[in-house]
């Protein structure tokens, strides 16, 4: 527990500084109201709006830990959302819709995993295939329109309230906790890290790298399906063109802000979801601060750049040397102070 805390400390600090910064521009940022059985306020919005990216980041963390990358998650959101909306529109009910969406996510993950682990295509290329073609699949399901539905049960997953909080908040937190426990209480975390750092050495030690890789991409597909369900339930419609558009990049960014290396190996799910919250705080903060929309991307890019530079290991060592050389320069000074005595 303490180890996890030390690991995510930089992300927690970043989040705290960022929230303070947003509060400067929008003083009511931290205000939370309770009325009509629900909490509301900008922070609650951050927790809710960050759900899709946080979920994608959970799956992406595992994929990146194996030295892979999954560019298809945004598209998988569109596919699974379309599948769910289609199931409801066809009158199959919310439960079936959820199951169908999750199954679609698993199938997408299986496809990616097989391309990577069995066929041996580089992950960035393998997942690019689904990323570009998948929206076409989603459009086939929705027949090119925004497939709307009116099913209070399914919509509850996107905009419902449970114990005062939006339901998506529970979904992403539970998913992240479940995955973290699964990784650390079983040996999966160790094996995933091992194949990410050195696949051939792991295979020689008897690790079943192929099956693990497929499983990891399927997990990513499953997380994307959850994100797709939330996004679709939220607007009560499946928008094949826009659902999850570019979110794969936000998810990768969240993992990176979480201090996980794109070269694979050691990973922290907690740090990644904090990374997702950092990104969402930036997004929501920009909206609340009321800058003209032309500045949105510039401000976001600037903040992300600052965060990544502050986290870079090179800077840490430069800082170490800078401090040392400063203290060393100060060292020869005791002579005058002695004169003073």
């Amino acid at each position: 527990m303490r180890r996890t805390f030390t690991r995510v400390l930089p992300q927690l600090l970043t989040l705290a500084v960022l929230m303070a910064l947003v509060t400067l521009f929008f003083p009511q940022f931290l205000a939370v109201d309770y009325q009509g059985g629900r909490l509301s306020g900008p922070v609650i919005d951050v927790l809710k709006r960050g759900a899709p990216v946080a979920l994608l980041a959970v799956g992406m963390t595992l994929v990146i830990a194996t030295r892979g990358i999954d560019l298809s998650v945004g598209t998988v959101m569109a596919i699974t959302g379309a599948a769910a909306a289609w199931a409801i529109a066809s009158g199959w009910g919310a439960g079936t819709a959820v199951l169908l969406a999750l199954a679609a996510g698993l199938v997408c993950g299986l496809w990616n995993g097989c391309l990577v682990a069995v066929v041996g295509i580089q992950p960035i290329v393998a997942t690019l295939i689904l990323m570009t073609s998948g929206r076409g699949i989603a459009q086939l399901i929705t027949e090119g329109r925004i497939l709307t539905f009116n099913d209070p049960g399914f919509a509850w997953l996107g905009s419902g309230i449970l114990a005062g909080l939006p339901v998506p908040v529970f979904i992403w937190i539970l998913t992240a906790v479940a995955v973290a426990i699964l990784m650390r209480r079983t040996a999966l975390g160790l094996l995933v890290e091992a194949i990410g750092i050195n696949r051939s050495a792991s295979a020689l030690a008897g690790v079943n790298a192929r099956v693990l890789l497929i499983a990891v991409y399927m997990a990513s597909g499953l997380c994307a399906a959850l994100a797709g369900i939330i996004a679709t339930a939220d607007i009560r419609g499946a928008d094949a063109n826009n659902a999850g558009l570019w979110l794969e990049l936000d998810a990768i960014l969240a993992v990176v802000i979480g201090g996980n290396s794109l070269l694979g190996g050691r990973f922290s799910v907690a740090a990644s979801v904090l990374g997702a919250m950092i990104i969402q705080t930036i997004d929501t903060g920009i909206l609340l601060a009321g800058f003209p929309s032309e500045y949105n991307l510039v401000i976001k890019a600037g903040l992300v750049l600052i965060i990544l530079v502050l986290q870079s290991p090179n800077l840490a060592s430069e800082w170490y040397f800078l401090r040392r050389s400063l203290t060393q320069r100060r060292e020869p000074k005791p002579v005058p102070s002695r004169v003073k005595e």
Partner: peptide, 8 residues
Amino acid sequence: TDGIIADL
């Protein structure tokens, strides 16, 4: 390349 998992 085939023996140790360096970062572990």
